[in-house]
Amino acid sequence: MFAFLQYDFFLRALLAGALVGLLAANLGVFVILRKMTFFSEAISHSSLTGIVLGLLLGINPLLGAVGFSILIALGIASLAKRRTVSLDTLIGVFFSTALALGVILIGKLKGYRVDLFGYLFGDILGVSRTDIYLIVALTVVTMVLLFLFFRVWAKIAFHGDLAAVEGIRVALHDRLFLCVLALVIALGIKLVGAVLIGPLVIIPAATAKNLSWNLRSVFVLSSVIGVSAALLGLVLSFYTSTASGPTIVLVSAAAFGLSFLARAKTVRT
């Protein structure tokens, strides 16, 4: 029944899924509360261009994704500060430009790149031992940052000006948060692919927000949903021979659908 447990590659994928699901779900709460959904989508789509750049330059594609996503995120953040163009317009322009550049660069890659599909939609076979070390190390770093700055980021999400009056350096923390988000998005690429990592960040948190009115339970629920959806999605994809990324996203979307119905019911009663 648990045939998948005998494969090393699948155990690695489950471990990667649980860790990335946990990180994405926690950062996702801040993304949802700050209404940065479109922003995180933009970062994830830009990471594709980073991957192609990595392949072209002969460096680790995930490092390319991290570097390029951080560049795009910080670029949008610093232009948004000038307030001459609205944020959603800026994001729209940046992310379509990055994506267009990525598609053009794909054309420059020599030969048939079978691994490219994996980077787009996730490839559990592709989670190597090195990837696992990278994911574990970055999970530890991200969880430490979350632990250190949880209150600060929550206060900024609630009301930026109130946080600033308290002496919190809001612009600096915004940039730090964007870098961590770009990092987690890049980590998720192996698992669900650049196209679908955005939903992995957003859906568990949005589901948790539907189900709860207090911050503590939103974080706990989001983590549980994020990890379970990743694990369940991986197992389902094993048995149905579907791509791991879309399967995980469909599982979380189903959870969101149910939570939405539950919320509609509580609002009515």
Partner: peptide, 11 residues
């Protein structure tokens, strides 16, 4: 925003 009064003040 999912936050109780107590949580706001605890922050």
């Amino acid at each position: 925003f999912p936050l109780t009064v107590e949580e706001l003040l605890l922050l």
